[in-house]
């Protein structure tokens, strides 16, 4: 087994796969409010990303086990799926945010301490390593169910690495 396969088998995404693809770059660069990235590469019986999407951007499932597919022309970056996904596998990335070097990520958060707007946080990659500092811009709880959606300003070149924050 390759090292990549081993990493994937332990829950680390190493490359694009069905159910875990990046948005088309040209659309993404100019999309205000951002586009969703879903990292759900395994067939599992689950579809709230589709049923909760207000614009139909997560296309209907033929089978509930299907991996999600996204019609990026419909995604508004609203982050409802970020709040709903039981697997915490949805992340919104807004590349139009701030100056050239910054981007805004909308990440799910269910930990303590509670994140506060304006606060500096550690940005973690898929293996939990601290790769940058970020600043919390906004915190919402869209479904009022204790899953927060944290909007955090991060270095733009790390949006495909950062997948969590740690409030320190």
């Amino acid at each position: 087994m390759t090292d990549k396969q081993k990493l994937f088998n332990s829950g680390i995404l190493t490359e694009e796969r069905p159910g875990a693809v990046s948005p088309p770059r040209d659309l993404w660069e100019n999309k205000k409010n951002g586009l969703v990235i879903i990292e759900c590469p395994q067939r599992i019986p689950c579809n709230p990303c589709h049923t909760s999407c207000p614009t139909g951007a997560v296309v209907p499932f033929d089978d509930i086990n299907d991996q999600p597919q996204i019609d990026y022309s419909k995604c508004t970056g609203c982050a409802r799926c970020v709040a709903v996904c039981p697997g915490l596998a949805c992340f919104v990335v807004d590349l139009t945010w701030g100056d050239e070097s910054r981007a805004l990520m909308k990440l799910p958060y269910e930990m303590l301490p509670s994140p506060e707007e304006g606060r500096q946080v550690d940005c973690l990659n898929r293996e939990g390593n601290v790769v940058a500092k970020g600043t919390i811009v906004r915190v919402t709880e869209p479904m009022h169910d204790k899953t927060k959606v944290v909007q955090v300003e991060v270095p733009k070149d790390l949006v495909m690495d950062i997948r969590a924050i740690k409030v320190v």
Binding site: N9, S10, G11, C40, G87, R163
Partner: peptide, 20 residues
């Protein structure tokens, strides 16, 4: 040689720094 649970559950703890 791979996690038995859902991959997304593994990803959730991995990104918080838990080795598997």
């Amino acid at each position: 040689d791979k996690v038995g649970g859902y991959w997304v559950h593994a990803a959730k703890v991995r990104r918080l720094g838990v080795p598997i």
